[in-house]
Design a protein around this nucleic acid. Sequence first.
DNA 1: CGAGGTCTTGACGTGCTTCAAGTGCTGTGG
DNA 2: CCACAGCACTTGAAGCACGTCAAGACCTCG
Lengths: 250, 250
Amino acid sequence: MIRNSDAALQRFLGRLLCRSPLTDTEQAAILDLRGHVVRVAAHRDIVLPGEETGSACLVVDGLVARFDQMSNGTRQITSLYIPGDMCDLHSVVSPTAGWGLTAVAPTVTLRILHSDLRELAIKYPGIAFAFWRDTTVETSIAAKWVSNVGRREARSRMAHLFCEIGIRTERAGIGTRNDFPLPMTQNQLGDALGLTPVHVNRTLQTLRQDGLVATENRRVHVARWKELADVAEFDPRFLLMTERPDAVAA
Amino acid sequence: MIRNSDAALQRFLGRLLCRSPLTDTEQAAILDLRGHVVRVAAHRDIVLPGEETGSACLVVDGLVARFDQMSNGTRQITSLYIPGDMCDLHSVVSPTAGWGLTAVAPTVTLRILHSDLRELAIKYPGIAFAFWRDTTVETSIAAKWVSNVGRREARSRMAHLFCEIGIRTERAGIGTRNDFPLPMTQNQLGDALGLTPVHVNRTLQTLRQDGLVATENRRVHVARWKELADVAEFDPRFLLMTERPDAVAA
DNA sequence: CGAGGTCTTGACGTGCTTCAAGTGCTGTGG
DNA sequence: CCACAGCACTTGAAGCACGTCAAGACCTCG
């Protein structure tokens, strides 16, 4: 249990360091954060739309989604959080807005008090900047999702999501861009892409038939990264990683 | 000229104060910011996709859009900035990502050095938090755009944009929710909503025919706010205004 | 007075949705 | 160890929202 949460904090720190320099003291302060571990079953909501919580939610294992819900009950996933991501970092400065959080797959989370995070940000300006910078990553990804959903057809849209998650999981050390876990049902994939489950299914089939990706056991295997990225018109700059993720071989 | 920029800083300060408390000293520091005024003609790009700049861009007058460009040249607008908004506040902590900025209408901007803003954030922690909080508003709006484009049909989507801009312009003191400037062509409206200009035209017509809105001279007149908000399923919480914007009469 | 952008309209095509049914898997209780 | 319930996935057929193409009207400004 403690092992898990330490590993998660380490991963969170890695994510911050990927974009922001932090002194040893600051790094130690991050790793000293405490929270309690909460396990959530797949398809269980963690925070209901509009609900306010006093703690942020660090993903230790599994997959979490932020979603918006329409009045007819259909959902749109607006961001995905993989292990090492802090779901509610922005709520340190802003109370929750009307979004919900749900466990896409069986998930382990570490709940960390907003007040603890806020204290850290006040005490260490470097951490405040790192946190701020980390939330801009979310903005950038959200903006990309807008153009993805607004201007690309299903096939390209799905390819783009695969590329994004591939790079992010690789960066988090959970998989490689060519083979990574994506524990979502086709239904949830539809919620993320703004498509119906039926069309997700058919679109996925075309990607498979063209030999671009294979899926098995909730993992995505990318057979030809370059071609997939072409279909997606994928430009990784929006992920705001200072190390060029392009560098790695395709 | 100086008058203009003072008014813009005042408006920017008002926007910050709407969500963050600032001491008198901090407020004065914001108002003391200096920049140079740049006028931009309609349809002129301010920052090209991928370009980096050393200054943020405060909208004094007009309308600015952030956009993403597909390889075939089509654009998707990912955020709109009205007078008093700072376009590139997040680039104080993150270099530009691949987005472009364009003047939707004839626009006056005030360019403020990132370094000046960063200094302010370092010197006054209250300002750092206010800036951070301000960027979370952008995230929240972007997330709402995802669900808007992903899960709503054209009519509802357009209604939602009108509601959003109505509330934001009202808050900025530029108009009321029932009558506000929206200096966009139907083409640009399509770029914001993920629709073709032709379909924007037809959709707008249905809203007009149903007596919900009227447009003239680049202004939107909302005839029946309540009904428009219903069509949009508009819930203003995502704008993160501490004062309840609902309070005002419909 | 002409050029070019903006808006409008019509006809037609298509990507995606909807509805409906059926298959296969997995886990659970008798 | 089998029966069955429930969910995920798959497939087909039909419909609709929106895109595409094309042309014409209107407006503004040089």
